[in-house]
Design a protein around this nucleic acid. Structure first.
Lengths: 230, 230
DNA sequence: AAGAGGAATTTTGTATACAAGATTATTGAC
DNA sequence: GTCAATAATCTTGTATACAAAATTCCTCTT
């Protein structure tokens, strides 16, 4: 532990503290409702309270913490219903990206998307779920960008990031990677030769299925508190 | 100025500093690209740099400031294209709220919405644009809530707030209040006796028109920099 | 005179110190 | 023994102090 701390102390900047604390929260080191002890975290990261509290602010803005005046910072894992709600919104945002992209994107953009889809295929064939995950990220972000609406792309990315950990878990579910890929093919086909509304529908479905699969996943964890699964 | 400062110093809490600074930015006291001087603002609000910097963080999270490391806080007014993009997303979010509300809302919720619409009618008859503005806010927020998706409602509210100042300006445009009211009637009618998709379409149109009217507004300002109009 | 280099000054980022509210523990009364 | 009140402790919020980076200004060289 002492050597770990020295490593921690070494070249740690504010950004990496944010990332590490965010990771710790998402990964479940802190469960829902836990109060974060400023002094303990100061020691852990080797910084004073000032920068740590700035990190708190950022995490609170991202929705990972509740900052209650004069009480402290409390971790806030989204409850099951909230996650379902988030997926519902995500489906609509992706559908919107798809509709706009279908109308606005250039051939070059479509080529890039097809290339990314091909990358997914390759990862799937090799059974590399990490690589698939990474290429899948790129696939979606390319579509966000292709919408031609930078604000929309940013909002979609933000929500996408918030649902990241769940998405990752899902790929481990048996058969999910194959199904995801099939959906990707449908999306590309819609872009290629379908209408904008078809592209929107394909993306909406793709995300909705993720939401449903997430539902299954939770159900299979049965008694386990939702917070842990996040 | 001295007495003003004493008033300032009196019961000023961090939240009110945020509001006042936000107001100052939105109202155009600071134009796009201005760097906010920490010390000057500390004096103005009668606080030290620590709480002021927390306010900076919050404003940056809301998109009103750019925090550039080792350089400072810069006001960031959305450019024209960005505002158009925001309206495009807002239209879709409101449409989604409308679609879900059309499917899920209770009679009690519909009654409340109708009551709010009636309030708008009353304000319109009396030509009270401020009252209309307030009741209009309520009308929209009720629809967000009626979607039954709390996350969506929060996101819609957030974006709605960001477009607030523009919405307010628009009501001053000749005939806009009447047109807005007519659109509201269409929305209520769709909820009352139409399909969920009709409600969605009515709301999408309502917001899209706002976006277009905003476009006209900007055009009428011609040479004036966009930042000022925000 | 114009530009490069460097010192002085400003400004940001972080640590620490202090004040005020919240929590916990202790003591006393019933 | 339990509850309440008050004191002690802890924690948060804010101010100040200090360190490091960036900017400005000056000087010196070509």
């Amino acid at each position: 532990m002492s050597d770990l701390r020295s490593v921690t102390k070494a070249g740690r900047r504010a950004d990496s503290i944010l990332e590490e604390l965010e990771h710790a929260i998402v990964v479940g080191e802190f469960v829902d409702g836990d109060r974060l002890d400023e002094m303990k975290l100061c020691e852990r990261f080797g910084v004073s309270r000032t920068p740590l509290r700035e990190v708190f602010q950022k995490l609170a803005a991202a929705g990972l913490l509740d900052l209650i005046p004069r009480r402290g910072a409390f971790v806030r894992h989204p409850a099951f219903v909230e996650l379902v709600e988030m997926f519902e919104v995500m489906a609509e945002l992706e559908a919107m990206c798809g509709r706009l992209a279908g109308r606005r994107m250039t051939q070059a953009m479509l080529n890039e998307i097809k290339e990314s889809a091909a990358g997914c295929e390759a990862a799937l064939k090799r059974g590399e779920s990490n690589e698939y995950y990474r290429e899948n990220e790129r696939f979606h972000h390319l579509i966000y960008e292709a919408s031609g609406n930078a604000f929309l792309a940013a909002e979609a990315s933000r929500l996408h990031k918030r649902l990241k950990s769940i998405r990752r878990m899902q790929l481990l579910a048996r058969g999910r990677m194959e199904q995801s890929m099939a959906e990707h093919r449908g999306i590309v086909a819609a872009f290629q030769s379908g209408t904008a509304d078809e592209a929107a529908a394909a993306l909406r479905l793709h995300v909705s299925i993720q939401g449903e699969k997430f539902n299954d996943l939770i159900a299979s964890y049965s008694k386990r508190p939702v917070a842990k699964a996040v």
